[in-house]
Amino acid sequence: MLDDRARMEAAKKEKVEQILAEFQLQEEDLKKVMRRMQKEMDRGLRLETHEEASVKMLPTYVRSTPEGSEVGDFLSLDLGGTNFRVMLVKVGEGEEGQWSVKTKHQMYSIPEDAMTGTAEMLFDYISECISDFLDKHQMKHKKLPLGFTFSFPVRHEDIDKGILLNWTKGFKASGAEGNNVVGLLRDAIKRRGDFEMDVVAMVNDTVATMISCYYEDHQCEVGMIVGTGCNACYMEEMQNVELVEGDEGRMCVNTEWGAFGDSGELDEFLLEYDRLVDESSANPGQQLYEKLIGGKYMGELVRLVLLRLVDENLLFHGEASEQLRTRGAFETRFVSQVESDTGDRKQIYNILSTLGLRPSTTDCDIVRRACESVSTRAAHMCSAGLAGVINRMRESRSEDVMRITVGVDGSVYKLHPSFKERFHASVRRLTPSCEITFIESEEGSGRGAALVSAVACKKACMLGQ
């Protein structure tokens, strides 16, 4: 009897593995994704193909990295998701002549009506938060230079001027797309009239992360975010950046690689679950690469896999709870928690219980395998993109072996128990001629924006502006 049951459990697990095998990517698959990513990057950089390229390769006008001589107080704003952060950054000489960066910050959550109302409502709310922060720190009387981390696709015309191309991540505030974001912020500050600010720089969160990590390690020339969304930036040779005049030196390019796949480059790798996630998203047909990796989508992918296993009578005796059938019910943090389970399955059992399920031991094991399959594919897909960037940098610099540091931020990278190990191992397999160091950014977005502002202020002083 026991043997029969054991055989049935083994057969069930084997069927589960057959279904989950769809998520496995072979090294040849990853090399294919990497080569296609490089081709799209090239198209994004070139003037004649930029418009139709899915990977936009947006110039950021960040050319210099901090040298350690900029000092002063800077205000930093960070808008990239449902939370908005205001930070005071003091850049100065530390002990023994070292450079020191001290920060104080406060988080504000953005109400739904500000995210989806008008641009005026959104930026009025942001300036209200700045006003509140300055009151708390008794700094209303000071006109501070301000660095703005704005983590949406922007076409820069200068370091302090950028046109919002399109909202992502659930934002829909009308009247912002096609307009200068810094102008919208300046107008809102003017409307309030109770404080003055000098907006000197606007950067993407990947750029802010790279600059913040450069402060720790001067070989950091790539910034990457794996959180709600997924994106990367890197220092490109100016001669390859056709959208900006000049051939000397390097400029940081914001790849906006989340949109890779929007022209069909990933079609052969998309599964039924991916198509369902895409169809029910706020932007169907867009940001397809990001939807395979980002935390906004990972939990939902797992939920759809679990429903398939229920329908195949391989999980929960073929019956799903009402909660499990509800879109968004299986949160991405559950994926991390399930994979963090120590082996007694308590954590998995508790999560499934909150979803109205009474799982068996085998159910718990199957749910864990589903989570591992989805998150491992995410790590491997992400590795193909980064390997594409790094191999490109090595080739354009004609280096036999390139040493490089990548600064990384984002909740999936930082909080998932195995993502970074799987990701690092896969990147290294795909970049055999590179020695890569990964560092995690601390308060990256805010500190990085302030350091970019410090560079901009120093330049302005040198130019006598």
Results as ranks from 00 to 15, higher is better:
residue 326 T to D: 10
residue 245 E to K: 00
residue 190 K to N: 12
residue 65 T to D: 14
residue 451 L to M: 08
residue 360 S to E: 06
residue 462 M to Y: 14
residue 276 L to N: 12
residue 96 E to G: 09
residue 2 L to C: 02
residue 94 G to A: 10
residue 426 S to L: 07
residue 325 R to H: 10
residue 380 H to W: 08
residue 290 E to G: 11
residue 138 Q to R: 12
residue 228 T to V: 06
residue 437 T to I: 00
residue 136 K to P: 03
residue 389 V to Y: 01
residue 432 P to A: 12
residue 132 D to P: 02
residue 119 A to Y: 04
residue 30 L to G: 03
residue 407 G to M: 07
residue 365 D to A: 07
residue 63 R to Q: 00
residue 222 V to E: 00
residue 338 V to I: 02
residue 28 E to G: 10
residue 9 E to R: 10
residue 187 D to L: 03
residue 161 K to V: 13
residue 145 P to E: 02
residue 32 K to N: 10
residue 257 W to I: 09
residue 349 Y to T: 06
residue 292 L to E: 07
residue 399 E to I: 07
residue 313 N to R: 09
residue 256 E to Y: 12
residue 321 S to A: 10
residue 147 G to S: 10
residue 140 K to F: 06
residue 279 E to C: 15
residue 148 F to W: 09
residue 433 S to Q: 05
residue 185 L to N: 02
residue 50 H to N: 09
residue 197 M to D: 00
residue 395 E to I: 09
residue 288 L to N: 15
residue 316 F to R: 03
residue 382 C to W: 06
residue 172 K to R: 05
residue 113 D to V: 08
residue 331 E to M: 12
residue 55 V to W: 06
residue 74 F to G: 00
residue 108 Y to W: 09
residue 200 V to M: 05
residue 156 H to Y: 14
residue 159 I to S: 12
residue 124 D to V: 04
residue 229 G to T: 15
residue 273 Y to A: 06
residue 124 D to A: 03
residue 385 G to W: 09
residue 329 A to L: 13
residue 3 D to I: 02
residue 236 E to P: 00
residue 262 D to E: 09
residue 427 V to C: 09
residue 320 A to C: 14
residue 213 C to S: 08
residue 458 K to C: 10
residue 39 K to D: 11
residue 409 D to T: 10
residue 90 K to T: 05
residue 268 E to C: 09
residue 305 V to E: 01
residue 345 R to Y: 06
residue 245 E to P: 00
residue 271 L to M: 05
residue 373 S to Y: 06
residue 50 H to L: 03
residue 61 Y to R: 01
residue 97 G to L: 09
residue 214 Y to W: 13
residue 33 V to G: 02
residue 106 Q to Y: 06
residue 229 G to W: 11
residue 428 R to A: 13
residue 44 G to M: 07
residue 81 G to A: 15
residue 217 D to A: 08
residue 336 S to V: 09
residue 231 N to W: 04
residue 397 R to W: 03
residue 61 Y to A: 03
residue 19 I to T: 15
residue 78 D to G: 05
residue 166 N to T: 12
residue 264 G to K: 11
residue 446 G to E: 13
residue 3 D to H: 02
residue 453 S to V: 13
residue 437 T to C: 11
residue 34 M to L: 05
residue 421 E to Y: 14
residue 347 Q to Y: 08
residue 285 G to F: 13
residue 435 E to L: 12
residue 98 Q to E: 13
residue 450 A to T: 13
residue 148 F to R: 04
residue 427 V to H: 06
residue 299 G to C: 05
residue 378 A to I: 09
residue 143 K to D: 01
residue 404 I to D: 00
residue 69 S to A: 14
residue 296 K to M: 11
residue 446 G to F: 14
residue 207 V to I: 10
residue 16 V to G: 09
residue 15 K to N: 04
residue 78 D to I: 03
residue 164 L to I: 11
residue 306 L to F: 05
residue 403 R to T: 08
residue 102 K to F: 14
residue 243 L to W: 03
residue 231 N to L: 09
residue 334 F to W: 11
residue 167 W to V: 11
residue 417 P to L: 10
residue 342 T to R: 03
residue 34 M to Y: 09
residue 105 H to I: 05
residue 294 G to S: 13
residue 375 S to N: 03
residue 175 G to M: 09
residue 401 V to H: 06
residue 392 R to H: 13
residue 222 V to C: 01
residue 365 D to E: 07
residue 56 K to D: 03
residue 430 L to R: 06
residue 330 F to D: 01
residue 279 E to V: 13
residue 140 K to S: 06
residue 249 G to N: 02
residue 89 V to N: 03
residue 233 C to V: 01
residue 451 L to P: 06
residue 417 P to E: 06
residue 240 N to E: 03
residue 237 E to R: 05
residue 461 C to G: 15
residue 408 V to G: 08
residue 256 E to I: 13
residue 78 D to A: 10
residue 298 M to L: 14
residue 364 C to E: 05
residue 94 G to Q: 13
residue 75 L to W: 01
residue 99 W to V: 07
residue 26 Q to R: 06
residue 115 M to T: 05
residue 248 E to D: 06
residue 66 P to L: 08
residue 88 L to W: 04
residue 113 D to E: 06
residue 195 F to Q: 02
residue 207 V to A: 06
residue 265 E to A: 05
residue 307 L to T: 08
residue 293 I to W: 13
residue 247 D to E: 02
residue 114 A to Q: 15
residue 168 T to K: 15
residue 349 Y to S: 03
residue 211 I to E: 00
residue 439 I to A: 08
residue 306 L to A: 01
residue 446 G to L: 14
residue 201 A to H: 00
residue 291 K to L: 12
residue 163 I to L: 12
residue 370 A to E: 00
residue 122 L to S: 10
residue 157 E to K: 14
residue 304 L to E: 02
residue 295 G to R: 10
residue 69 S to C: 10
residue 228 T to N: 13
residue 209 T to W: 02
residue 313 N to I: 05
residue 211 I to M: 04
residue 180 N to A: 05
residue 360 S to M: 04
residue 110 I to M: 11
residue 83 N to G: 10
residue 163 I to T: 10
residue 236 E to M: 01
residue 23 F to G: 03
residue 293 I to G: 10
residue 252 C to Q: 00
residue 203 V to M: 01
residue 221 E to N: 12
residue 90 K to G: 03
residue 362 T to D: 10
residue 161 K to R: 11
residue 408 V to R: 00
residue 145 P to F: 00
residue 263 S to H: 10
residue 45 L to E: 02
residue 127 S to R: 06
residue 109 S to F: 06
residue 314 L to M: 08
residue 64 S to E: 14
residue 62 V to N: 06
residue 222 V to F: 02
residue 281 S to I: 10
residue 184 L to A: 12
residue 207 V to C: 06
residue 374 V to A: 05
residue 327 R to C: 12
residue 400 D to W: 04
residue 275 R to T: 15
residue 84 F to G: 02
residue 392 R to V: 12
residue 212 S to G: 13
residue 245 E to L: 03
residue 307 L to G: 03
residue 434 C to F: 10
residue 381 M to L: 12
residue 237 E to D: 12
residue 272 E to Y: 01
residue 256 E to A: 09
residue 12 K to Y: 15
residue 349 Y to G: 02
residue 165 L to G: 12
residue 308 R to A: 04
residue 108 Y to G: 03
residue 281 S to G: 14
residue 272 E to N: 08
residue 241 V to P: 00
residue 65 T to K: 04
residue 279 E to F: 15
residue 428 R to T: 10
residue 183 G to P: 12
residue 283 N to F: 12
residue 123 F to W: 11
residue 176 A to F: 13
residue 356 G to A: 02
residue 259 A to I: 04
residue 393 M to K: 11
residue 234 Y to R: 00
residue 278 D to A: 06
residue 414 K to S: 12
residue 408 V to M: 09
residue 368 R to L: 07
residue 196 E to K: 05
residue 330 F to Q: 00
residue 92 G to P: 01
residue 328 G to T: 15
residue 53 A to L: 03
residue 288 L to V: 15
residue 235 M to R: 00
residue 8 M to V: 15
residue 427 V to S: 09
residue 197 M to K: 00
residue 278 D to L: 11
residue 300 E to S: 06
residue 289 Y to W: 15
residue 27 E to D: 03
residue 316 F to V: 12
residue 149 T to E: 12
residue 324 L to Q: 01
residue 451 L to V: 11
residue 429 R to G: 12
residue 264 G to I: 01
residue 18 Q to D: 03
residue 451 L to E: 13
residue 411 S to T: 08
residue 189 I to W: 10
residue 345 R to A: 06
residue 135 D to F: 06
residue 256 E to T: 13
residue 458 K to M: 13
residue 420 K to N: 05
residue 385 G to C: 06
residue 112 E to S: 05
residue 167 W to E: 13
residue 387 A to V: 01
residue 268 E to W: 06
residue 414 K to P: 10
residue 188 A to L: 01
residue 143 K to Y: 04
residue 326 T to K: 09
residue 77 L to Y: 06
residue 25 L to R: 04
residue 346 K to S: 08
residue 218 H to C: 06
residue 252 C to D: 00
residue 63 R to N: 00
residue 259 A to G: 07
residue 112 E to V: 07
residue 439 I to W: 07
residue 238 M to K: 00
residue 222 V to T: 02
residue 42 D to H: 10
residue 405 T to V: 01
residue 332 T to V: 11
residue 215 Y to N: 13
residue 332 T to E: 12
residue 388 G to D: 04
residue 262 D to R: 10
residue 363 D to R: 00
residue 172 K to T: 03
residue 178 G to R: 10
residue 123 F to T: 09
residue 151 S to Q: 06
residue 321 S to L: 10
residue 344 D to F: 06
residue 327 R to L: 13
residue 455 V to H: 13
residue 166 N to Y: 07
residue 154 V to L: 11
residue 432 P to V: 14
residue 402 M to Q: 09
residue 381 M to F: 11
residue 460 A to E: 10
residue 95 E to M: 09
residue 3 D to R: 02
residue 388 G to W: 02
residue 135 D to T: 07
residue 292 L to S: 14
residue 61 Y to Q: 00
residue 337 Q to W: 08
residue 69 S to I: 09
residue 26 Q to D: 13
residue 151 S to W: 15
residue 70 E to I: 02
residue 151 S to P: 12
residue 268 E to I: 05
residue 275 R to Y: 12
residue 29 D to N: 08
residue 90 K to M: 03
residue 40 E to H: 00
residue 404 I to Q: 08
residue 252 C to V: 07
residue 47 L to D: 15
residue 47 L to S: 15
residue 161 K to L: 15
residue 255 T to Y: 14
residue 396 S to M: 15
residue 242 E to H: 10
residue 188 A to C: 04
